[in-house]
Computed example of a mutant assay.
Amino acid sequence: MTSTPTITLSAEIVAQHIDHTLLKPEATAADVTALIIEAIELGTYSICVSPSMLPLTIPAGSDLKVAVVCGFPSGKHHSAIKAAEAALSIEQGADEVDMVIDIGAVKAGRFTDVQADIATVRASVPAPKVLKVIIESAALTDAEIVGVCQASVAAGADFVKTSTGFHPAGGATVHAVRLMKQTVGDRAEVKASGGVRTFDDALAMIEAGATRLGVSGSAALLSGSTSAVPTGTY
């Protein structure tokens, strides 16, 4: 999945790249409360949860951001439904929305439709709120990755993101992250998500161009341990 990184960063700096994530269907309100506490202790940039968990209370004095998913995990929702879901999430306090595109539209070469889908959600996530576009890179060819990244930028997305972590094709790879960054340049940022389980994974993704990481096992990753990192819960 990753190459050996050549950069060296402290755990504190890597933590500031992390969206501390809990998207398991069985997650409870108590689980999310524990997630918030852990995220603050670890110093992660944000938490990422399902929209049904909103609204949330972030302790006073914390600058922890709240991200939610939209159209998750299949992306096969009508654009108007995605936009409504995103709008409600923003109304209920989300700082960032991670939307899933229609992967089938990409596979069919319908990039105009993909761009329109993203633009519809973007209209419900006005700046300075952040919109990330999940492209499910492991299910795409390089040409398709380039095409959907171009569509994302044209629609006004702030980030392109590799994966939901739920697709059988797999999660983030250094190759995909590097290609995504080369495509979007300075016009957007890249989030690596899905299978980022070790500290070296995190460094390799950052070195390839990711400025954000979706991680469910953040404590284990930041401690350098892999034994406690769950799989399939990104």
Rank of each mutant, 00 (worst) to 15 (best):
V114C: 10
V130S: 04
I206R: 06
V196L: 03
A29H: 13
A139W: 03
T112Q: 11
S124P: 06
G147D: 00
P59K: 08
S10H: 07
G170T: 06
L64W: 03
S3H: 15
C149L: 00
Q150S: 07
S223M: 09
G104Q: 01
A30S: 15
L54E: 12
R197F: 08
A27K: 10
A172E: 08
Q115G: 12
A154G: 09
I90T: 03
A188V: 08
V160T: 11
T198N: 12
I206N: 13
H77I: 09
E38R: 12
T57W: 06
R197S: 11
P230I: 02
A154W: 01
G195F: 11
A202R: 10
S152K: 01
P168M: 07
S79C: 09
G224V: 00
A208D: 06
A138K: 11
T21E: 05
R197Y: 07
A210P: 00
S62F: 14
G232D: 02
E12N: 08
V160W: 04
I40V: 14
D186P: 01
L140D: 02
A60T: 15
I47S: 08
L179E: 06
I206C: 12
V153C: 02
G109Y: 00
L54T: 11
G214F: 06
A15H: 13
S216N: 09
A86D: 05
A11C: 12
S74C: 13
I118D: 01
E144P: 00
E41R: 14
G217I: 05
E207H: 05
T164V: 11
T183P: 10
Q92N: 15
L179A: 02
H20T: 04
G224W: 01
P73A: 09
G214H: 06
E41C: 05
F166V: 14
K129L: 01
D98P: 00
A151V: 05
G104A: 07
T8Y: 02
V49F: 04
G156K: 04
T8S: 15
L179C: 04
K107Q: 13
I58Q: 13
S218L: 03
G195Y: 12
P51S: 10
V69N: 02
G165D: 09
A34L: 10
L213S: 05
Q115E: 15
F159M: 03
